[in-house]
């Protein structure tokens, strides 16, 4: 085998790997969040990366939003199914460091949240939060900032409950973490 062939083969392999990684990313990225189905796991920023091991296994790295997020197992299963259906040998890796933050929700994700009726989180996540400082939360329906927090905890671990004083609608706020 000539040096030339080896180089050529190596090049072909690496091209294919990049393409596969891209394709696997797109497949995994399209998996919806089971609790907020209008959002994909890419929008939420919990799909961290796709790795292809030397023996060809596609490893999807996923970060949970909360330590006990009940959706994380459903998400991992859905990603595994989607990648397996596309013909990949698949492995899921749960990554907790660095810890997921709402800053990783994409701009598209923020827009989708708002369209779904959930106020998106503040962009800058709090490092040392002042004890009682509340963020200014705009109503996702009428954009008024005359809103009031009803409950620190809402229908899922990641949401708080608010109401709008302007349009009287109750709504969820995606907590800033």
């Amino acid at each position: 085998m000539s040096t030339h062939t080896i180089k050529k083969n190596a090049c072909v392999v690496s091209m294919a790997e990049t393409q596969h990684r891209q394709r696997a990313w797109e497949i995994a990225a399209a998996v919806p969040d089971p609790e907020i189905p209008s959002l994909t796991i890419e929008d939420l920023g919990i799909l961290r990366r796709i790795e292809i091991t030397s023996n060809g296994v596609v490893v999807a790295h996923i970060s949970p939003t909360y330590s006990a997020c009940p959706a994380v197992m459903a998400i991992e299963e859905a990603v595994e199914q989607a990648l397996t259906a596309a013909g990949y040998r698949t492995e899921i890796k749960r990554v907790i460091s660095p810890a997921w933050t709402t800053d990783w929700i994409t701009d598209m994700g923020r827009k989708k949240l708002k369209d779904y009726g959930i106020a998106p989180p503040d962009k800058a996540s709090p490092s040392a939060r002042a004890l009682f400082s509340d963020p200014v939360v705009a109503c996702p329906r009428c954009d008024s900032t005359r809103t009031e927090k009803v409950s620190e905890f809402g229908s899922t671990a990641c949401k708080a409950h608010y109401k709008c004083e302007a349009c009287n609608e109750p709504f969820d706020y995606f907590k800033c973490l």
Partner: peptide, 19 residues
């Protein structure tokens, strides 16, 4: 609201316990 809050905190604690 507290019926939501306390189990939510409990859930966080259980998640931490599992890890």
């Amino acid at each position: 609201e507290e019926d939501l809050a306390m189990p939510n905190i409990a859930l966080d604690l259980l998640g931490q316990a599992r890890a």
